[in-house]
């Protein structure tokens, strides 16, 4: 399935089925088993959006990828989960999967996601250009973001101090 980050389409080194892929993504309830298997392949996990991220807390440094599902584009739990995982110190890849829209891509990046994995149907309907444009539609945010934007409140302060 197509994978996009802020630069555009990317090759996906992970797969849920293909054993020759560089890394594997396992279901949440298969995570313990995959981590204990002794394999050297990087392990990622599909996190349903009703699971509290604290349940990954003990595995964070062994996970190469966390994929958070957006079952409907109107279901914004994934944005909180991403930010919480980052707050808990997760440094690996963070991927949004499911029904997410280009119009939400900037929010996803701001919340700590690195990339989105979409269906072929979505990719056909929503061309790459729309995804690439999305992160640049707004110059500023009123809160600090996980992708490095400093809040308007703080930038005003900086401007005052520089003056």
């Amino acid at each position: 399935m197509p994978l996009l980050d802020r630069e555009g389409l990317q090759a996906d080194p992970f797969d849920r089925a293909d054993p020759s892929a560089e890394g594997v993504i396992v279901p949440f309830d298969g995570l313990e088993e995959a981590l204990e298997s002794g394999s050297n392949r990087p392990v990622g996990v599909d996190l349903p959006n009703h699971v509290h991220p604290s349940r990954l807390a003990s595995h964070l440094d062994r996970l190469a990828l966390v994929a958070i599902d957006f079952p409907k584009f109107s279901d914004g739990r994934g944005f909180s989960l991403a930010r919480m995982l980052r707050e808990q110190g997760y440094r690996g890849r963070l991927r949004a999967t499911g029904r997410i829209l280009p119009d939400q891509f900037a929010f996803a990046l701001h919340s700590g996601f690195d990339e989105v994995e979409i269906s072929d149907e979505q990719a056909a309907r929503l061309p790459v250009g729309q995804w690439q444009l999305a992160p640049h539609q707004f110059s500023d945010n009123y809160v600090d973001t996980r992708d490095g934007r400093v809040s308007v409140f703080k930038r005003r302060r900086a401007a005052r101090e520089a003056a």
Binding site: S74, S80, F107, H110, S111, N141, Y142, V143
Partner: peptide, 13 residues
């Protein structure tokens, strides 16, 4: 108002 405007986490409640 400012804080909540286009808040990345809380726009799809």
């Amino acid at each position: 108002r400012q804080w909540s405007t286009l808040h990345p986490e809380f726009s799809f409640l």
